[in-house]
């Protein structure tokens, strides 16, 4: 272990402003400042030596109106960028119609991480291991970005391009993520499950989210499956979804979806697990996520977080 070369910028070049509205934040970002919300990624990343803290920072944590959870005109849900994980895991609408998102937020870090870490920070950090990504994708998440030229909307699938990389410009502020309305016809359920060695304070080694819709006869009429920490970006797995539609959503169908997820995975080996293990776990975790979503679609209660309740299943 030799001493790393200095990771710090010189103190005199550092600046900080606090924005109390979106326009101020965007102006500061246009001038080169990096937004900071809960800081649980940005500051912690710097402490880890991942990247030094940017010299210019703009605090966005107290911008009014960005911490709301509200219905959209289309019957979906609009989640302000500053909504915290603590809010998401306890919000009645999220628990009722988007439980997979609650599954994810409920297992982020510790209660301090959840009290400060925001949805916007989670999304904009663009980590392939972040937990809300898979359920957001499955629920049709769209990022609402505001830049100097105004507002634009980008599907999350088109936002993330690699670890820490996105198609958002450095001067675009995420103000909200909007989710699809739950399907009008038929019952639906969602879930997110991750492989975890400890029950708290984990980083996803493998994760999977699912949204399943059932017809009146219990047949799967719609399925969305996304996998986490198994590729440079969190992404949906069309083959897994296809393996579910038209089935009864039972164990065999879920297993087939799991196999498809494993086939689609491009895992790496590191201290947290070998690529072989991760691939095998992709099948197991996806299967559990699908089965949980199906159970919820059938009206069964599966407590949040599903990672705990599906242990050993």
């Amino acid at each position: 272990m030799s001493t790393a070369t200095s990771m710090t910028t010189s103190a005199s070049s550092r600046t900080y402003v606090e924005a109390r509205d979106v326009a101020t934040a965007v102006a500061a970002m246009s001038a080169g400042a990096r937004p900071i919300a809960g800081g649980t990624d940005l500051v912690v990343g710097a402490r880890h030596g991942k990247a030094p803290l940017p010299a210019a920072l703009v605090g966005i944590h107290r911008i009014p109106g960005l911490a709301d959870v509200a219905p959209t005109d289309g019957g979906g849900l609009r989640l302000g960028a500053l909504v915290t994980h603590a809010t998401l895991m306890a919000d009645p609408t999220v628990l009722a119609s988007y439980p997979g998102l609650a599954d994810a937020s409920a297992i982020v870090g510790s209660h301090a991480t959840r009290a400060n870490g925001t949805l916007g920070g989670n999304v904009m950090n663009s980590s392939p291991a972040m937990d809300t990504g898979a359920p957001l994708l499955c629920h049709g998440g769209v990022a609402v970005l505001v830049g100097p030229a105004g507002e634009r909307r980008v599907a999350l699938a088109d936002l993330w391009t690699g670890p820490g990389r996105s198609t958002a410009a450095p001067d675009e502020l995420l103000v909200a993520v909007e989710l699809d309305a739950p399907p009008a016809d038929g019952a639906s359920g969602s879930s997110y499950v991750r492989l975890q060695y400890r029950r708290q304070m984990e980083i996803a080694i493998v994760g999977a989210g699912a949204v399943v819709t059932l017809g009146a006869d219990g047949t799967v009429t719609g399925a969305k499956v996304a996998i986490t920490a198994l590729a440079p970006v969190i992404h949906r797995v069309a083959e897994a979804e296809a393996a579910l539609v038209g089935t009864d959503g039972g164990f065999e169908a879920a297993k087939a979806a799991g196999a498809a997820a494993a086939a689609a995975a491009r895992p790496i080996s590191d201290v947290r697990g070998s690529a072989d293990y991760r691939r095998a776990m992709a099948a197991v975790i996806t299967r559990r996520a699908v089965l949980t979503a199906v159970r919820r679609a059938r009206g069964e209660s599966v407590p949040v977080p599903a990672s705990d309740t599906t242990f050993g299943s």
């Binding site: 975890q196 060695y197 776990m281 197991v284 975790i285 242990f311 050993g312």
Partner: peptide, 8 residues
């Protein structure tokens, strides 16, 4: 309790 499928 052993989760046989994951080894946890």
């Amino acid at each position: 309790k052993v989760d046989r499928d994951t080894g946890v």
